[in-house]
Design a protein around this nucleic acid. Structure first.
Lengths: 204, 204
DNA sequence: AGGTAACCACACCGGTAGGTATACTCGCGA
DNA sequence: TCGCGAGTATACCTACCGGTGTGGTTACCT
């Protein structure tokens, strides 16, 4: 009899989740009360608790949805890229456009990890999962390129991702992902993943 | 008549600041109440407000002290390094030992930036200042090495710093700073900052 | 016709948040 | 000796937090 058992969200539940996502991301999870969420979603608190059970579960739902959106976004960007090098570059392109479109306040997963200081909070696992996912994605890609130590290179590339997000949010550097991408290219070249012909249009 | 006008903190004020720093860092700023700080510092709330004026000012004091400690820590590590390359490596060494000693929960500045979602909160400027400081430090160092675009390389190196902190806190990767350092070395080599003789002992 | 899922309105709960008020004690320097 | 800064103790303020309970309305499924 767990709430949120997954599956077809009712119209009100969809509104609640949409409103909560927006609020949790832009103002922070801990500073947003359920009363505000209810008001913004034109719903009573009762309805929120009937659909989601608790704030904790609503937070988890928010993180899960956002995590999935990001994974799909990256996967879509990967579609057109054929070489491993182009695929890595595509992840940085995805990061760049994603941040410009809807990520001015940093990575939602890292933010949540920070805000949910209780180690038992299930939201932390979602955040951790996303970080591990990116690492394994990058590891697979560079392994395909025949790199000696794929995990180490992937880890460095992931750090550039993370660092770019911080630079974008704290310093307002809108070109952060581009700078990180340039560094990623340099790193790949040094590891023997050479620039292919199609990379003539690369700025840097 | 501002409180905290700086300088010689009374004994109680020192205890308050020490306790608040510990609590704010490990549990998060928003989840720690003044009542708890008072209790842990064996002080009444009255005393806190007499010395610091408000929670906001206490938070700023916490961030300032921590920022200064980190800058001093890095500066100390820079002392023994003579070449630009060794100096950059020294910043990663500092990061490594710092994180092992007292940073398991990520960067206090980035965390505070996340938690203090109100753009007007003066704590955000402290966090931003630390990020700019690291960038300018790294820019100076690589400029000394005669790199073509020092700012761009420094930015990449700073992103590796930031990414290492995230990897350490979210993923628990205790070797994160070492991995980042290896990437930094590769980046420097690619930018013409060659390994000097003294770098025989470098692991990687 | 009956049942049930999905909602609404509203009132309420205990707990805690940041912050203030009053009144008193102690030790130090002029 | 007197004032003052630093501190104590305790009680209190308003506001909001996450969460619950009651009761009622609509609409669809059987």
């Amino acid at each position: 009899m767990t709430a949120v058992a997954t599956r077809p969200l009712t119209p009100a539940a969809r509104r609640i989740l949409a409103v909560a996502s927006e609020l949790f991301y832009t103002r922070g999870i801990n500073t947003v009360g359920m009363e505000l969420v209810a008001e913004r979603a034109s719903v009573t608190k009762k309805t929120i608790y009937d659909r989601f059970g608790s704030k904790q579960e609503l937070v988890v739902a928010y993180l899960r949805v956002r995590d999935e959106r990001w994974r799909d976004y990256v996967t879509d960007h990967l579609a057109g890229a054929r070489t491993p090098r182009a695929r890595v570059v595509a992840t940085f392109d995805a990061l760049h456009t994603w941040m410009e479109a809807e990520n001015p306040r940093g990575c939602a997963m890292v933010n949540a990890y920070t805000e949910l200081s209780d180690p038992e909070h299930p939201g932390r696992a979602v955040a951790e999962g996303q970080k591990r996912w990116l690492r394994s994605l990058l590891t697979e890609i560079v392994a395909d390129a025949g790199v000696a130590d794929p995990a180490a290179l992937a880890e460095s590339l992931a750090m550039l991702h993370e660092g770019a997000v911080v630079a974008r949010s704290v310093l307002g550097d809108t070109r952060a992902a581009l700078t990180a991408c340039a560094a990623a290219r340099t790193l790949m070249t040094a590891h023997g993943i050479a620039a292919d012909a199609s990379e003539a249009a690369g700025q840097r």
